[in-house]
């Protein structure tokens, strides 16, 4: 792509937690970058470290018991070296976050307007009156009807979809350059999810923020993302453009995920009921160091090499990185 430096550059991120049962290696050596205005999806199943990665970027990990190592460069500054006040100036201002559960991430005793307004008052020094005006603007932006009335309402007076819109309004209030969205539609019904995804796409063209979208739903990924990072057991196993990942998945885990995801329209092709591809077995425990490839225990093509040696992540096709010893290398890429 262009020669300019990426907006966010994560290098060898490790986030570990010291628990009484031993060290949990939630994120183990993850590197990827996000360019300005780009949408990157981080996909994986529960426990793969995708949410911990997001929390690490915003330094929302309690330390101890957690500990973050590696580098998180945001516009060239390593966020891990900033003091807590400096980090606070970035949170909600340059980088903001949307959470999965809109009910628990909104303060139940403050009005919607106060919660949106507080961010701008803090970061931009606006007066209370201007802040409310901004809150109304933001609610209009996220498509909430009668915003002048809604700013004075409390979160419990809003439906789940409305609350997620408010969360987005809060996150966008200070025009962040990076929006970290952790499963933003998982708790919502499918028709409401469609509304929110539509809103996020629309806002992206208008606001121009880069989005790091964390999700387990490949359908959401296909609709929203330009680039995809696939995580498994705390590691990045594959990265590429959304077309590469969906049309030419190279890692056996990614292939397994694609195969096990039921697709709408399946009844039109087959006469009987179809079978889904299964990934056998279970995710390995993160409490013990994993020797060899993390996916070796479930991989259909596993060999002794995989069990003993963890594969390096390599560019097997242009801009398509895979951590698998046996992923075919496109001849053209060499």
């Amino acid at each position: 792509m262009s020669s300019s430096a990426p907006l966010l550059d994560i290098q060898n991120l490790q986030t570990h937690f010291g628990t009484i049962d031993g060290v949990v290696r939630a994120v183990e050596g993850v590197s990827f970058s996000i360019n300005a205005g780009e949408t990157v999806a981080v996909v994986g199943e529960s426990g793969c470290g995708k949410s911990v990665t997001a929390m690490s970027i915003l330094r929302l990990i309690a330390t101890p018991p957690g500990k973050i190592a590696g580098k998180i460069l945001f516009k060239g500054t390593n966020l891990l070296e900033l003091s807590e006040p400096e980090m606070q100036a970035i949170r909600g201002n340059d980088i903001s976050m949307i959470f999965q559960e809109p009910m628990t991430s909104l303060n139940p005793v403050l009005t919607v307007g106060r919660q949106i307004g507080e961010t701008v008052m803090l970061h931009e020094g606006l007066s209370a009156k201007d802040a409310e005006q901004r809150a109304i603007e933001m609610l209009t932006l996220v498509g909430i009807p009668a915003p002048a009335r809604r700013v004075r309402e409390y979160p419990h007076q809003l439906s789940g979809g409305m609350r997620q819109r408010v969360m987005i309004a809060m996150a966008l209030a200070c025009s962040p350059q990076l929006l970290v969205a952790d499963e933003p539609t998982t708790a919502l019904d499918v028709t409401i999810q469609a509304q929110i995804l539509e809103l996020m796409r629309d806002l992206k063209t208008r606001v121009g923020a880069a989005i790091m979208l964390i999700t387990h739903d490949l359908g959401v990924v296909a609709e929203m993302a330009q680039r995809v990072v696939v995580m498994y057991a705390g590691r990045k196993v594959e990265e590429g453009s959304v077309e590469e990942i969906f049309l030419n998945p190279l890692h056996p885990y990614t292939r397994g995920l694609m195969g096990s995801m039921p697709k709408l329209g399946s009844s039109l092709h087959e006469t009987g009921r179809s079978k889904l591809t299964e990934i056998q077995g279970q995710v390995p425990s993160l409490r013990k160091p994993i020797i060899g490839c993390a996916f070796a225990g479930r991989c259909p093509n596993v060999t002794d090499v995989c069990r003993q040696m963890a594969p390096a992540i390599e560019e097997k096709a242009p801009k398509h990185l895979v951590a698998c010893h046996y992923a075919p290398r496109a001849a053209a890429a060499a």
């Binding site: 570990h16 060290v23 183990e28 500990k67 190592a69 040696m309 046996y326 075919p328």
Partner: peptide, 21 residues
């Protein structure tokens, strides 16, 4: 696109990571 499978001696191991805790 023509593809080639890596020969067994061409395996690249992932770099070792130090323990954080």
């Amino acid at each position: 696109m023509s593809t080639t499978t890596l020969p067994p001696d061409g395996f690249t191991p992932a770099p070792k990571l130090a323990d954080v805790l």
